[in-house]
Amino acid sequence: MSSLKRARRFRRLWLTLGVVLLAVTGLYVANSSALRGSEGGRPLLLAHRGIAQTFPLDGVLNDTCTATRIHPPEHSHIENTISSMRAAFDAGADMIEFDVQVTADNQLAVFHDSTLECRTDGTGRVRDHTLAELRRLDLGYGYTADGGVTYPLRGKGVGLLPTVEEVVAAFPDRELLIDLKNDDPAEGERLAAYLATLPAERLATIGVYGGGAPVDAVANRLPQVRAASEKTMRDCLVRYLATGWTGHVPGACRHTELHLPQRYGRLMWGWPNLFVDRMRAADTRVILVAGDGPWSEGFDRSADLEAVPADWSGWLWTNRADVITPLVRP
């Protein structure tokens, strides 16, 4: 090979490397949270079921009764009650998440499980009981931290089961997130029928998530409601991974919310703060969930906050707003 050919080959090689370097630099600059994302933000707090009793997640399965494995109680609040929600707001929460089951008399009861045996002194399915019957139950009956030797919340939950309407009325100017627990479109239609009676300004403060079928039922009737399911969140993130390097936010990511496990956030273009800024501009909330995400793991202790990105200005999912608020808002 002549020296002239070698020189030309080297020039082409360096030109190619220069183009690649420029492209990589441009990609970094366009998606650098450090260079372009907002700084100095403070987290917004989503209180999962108000202030709840927490429990270790090791060995938890879909059918595990978590009430029988709680940590020794540091408070007397029972999840999904108005008193626990009020305590969370008083502690500094910005939004409350709560669960919904439909009763035998077609009422929207605020309760987590589809059956009663785990947490209460009742038996059978929630949907097989009337609201009046459910109100007579003790919501704290089944909670124990020592394998059943003691039940510290027993007797403290009688008559505390609220309806969705009562929660909305109790917190008229606050952000609420409703979890449709069963993948039944009829339950989504029932919730949508109630939400449709609310004025537009109140509806703007309420979000819905849960199973795909009921969430679709709500979204189809009330497209102005921020609604999300596992499918909508997956569709958004897959599309964003494919195109987000350009700064484009796909339509699937607009006017919704993302419950994003913190360990997967780093995969997102512009993570963390530029990603949050882009989604906020698309009217989408980014809610950071601790760990892998399948069991609604919250940022509940000071040690949990070590995994939160610096200057995080999105949402944090917590079961203990009373513990976390003073740590993130000194």
Rank of each mutant, 00 (worst) to 15 (best):
S32P: 07
V208L: 14
Y28F: 15
S229N: 06
L21N: 05
L241G: 09
I82D: 11
D179F: 12
E165F: 05
V289I: 15
L198R: 13
A193P: 00
R6V: 11
L108N: 00
G291A: 13
W295R: 06
A282R: 08
D128K: 11
L191H: 02
R174G: 07
Y209H: 15
I178N: 05
R125N: 13
L222C: 10
L222M: 11
N106G: 03
V100K: 06
A170M: 10
R127V: 10
D304Y: 11
F98L: 09
Y240E: 04
E97M: 10
A282T: 02
A242C: 06
L35V: 05
S114A: 07
V323E: 14
E297W: 06
I51G: 02
G159K: 07
R202H: 12
I78P: 10
S3R: 15
R278M: 01
A200P: 06
H112I: 04
L21Y: 10
T246R: 13
I82E: 11
P272A: 15
E306C: 00
D235W: 06
G140N: 09
G37V: 12
Y194A: 08
D94E: 08
A104K: 14
C118P: 02
D128R: 09
D90I: 06
T197R: 14
V126Q: 10
D146R: 04
Q262C: 08
T123C: 05
F171I: 06
T205S: 13
E257H: 15
F98H: 12
F89V: 03
L13A: 15
E39P: 05
Q224A: 12
E306M: 01
E189V: 01
P152N: 01
V60F: 12
W312Q: 02
R221F: 01
P185I: 04
G291F: 12
R135D: 05
I206M: 07
L260A: 04
W312Y: 14
E166Y: 07
S84T: 09
T243D: 13
W295Q: 05
A186W: 08
R190H: 14
R301W: 13
T64W: 04
V19E: 00
A282D: 02
G92M: 10
M233H: 09
A192N: 09
S2M: 09
P261T: 02
V286G: 01
W269C: 01
L161S: 02
V249E: 01
D90F: 03
L17T: 02
R154D: 00
F55D: 04
G314P: 01
